[in-house]
Amino acid sequence: MPAPEDITATLLAERLPLTAFFASVTRDFHLAEDVFQEVCVKAVARAESFETTAHLMNWARLIGKNRSIDILRARDGRYVGLSDEMLALLAQEWPDESKTDAMQEALDQCITQITPNNRELLRLRYFERRNCTDVAAIMGRKIETVYQALARLHKTLGDCIRARLQTDSAS
């Protein structure tokens, strides 16, 4: 059974993968971070019930998913998004921090290789939380063009990150 301080340390280390999973439900990164904080508080309050770290993580994903859906239902009157079945399937395969830490380091390198325009596109999207309709208006592009540009950017960054991780593991 992990000690309360171990639970806090584990959850803080797993912040990125957990919030990314919650964002798959909330579709809002800030809201996902709020859910993460609530999950942390609840986890420490019932520390004695966790038998292993894997048990804790499974519980955190489940509680965070349910809390996210509750918030959206309270806010919007209903939840529209990925089904419970699909979220359960994703949760089973969701990575932990051992993989995401390396990804973040690789991302820091890869993002320096994109053009200023593409960087601005990502900034509007992920810092200013603009949807593609807003991004299109700001950048003077068509909405469909923005969706395609973002898709290409994610593919480019994903390929770059994979290549860097392979190089690192080979060396």
């Binding site: 993968p17 990314a20 399937l89 994703l90 990575p95 990502l122 900034r123 999207r125 992920y126 810092f127």
Partner: peptide, 30 residues
């Protein structure tokens, strides 16, 4: 979208990677 992920583990992986990268970008810009 769900069917594509249900039928193809590679698509689920692509979705997972995209969500993680999006969250990491959000952190990085902040």
């Amino acid at each position: 979208f769900e069917t594509a992920m249900r039928d193809d583990p590679a698509k689920r992986q692509l979705f997972t990677d995209t969500q993680l990268r999006s969250m990491a970008l959000h952190d990085r810009f902040r």
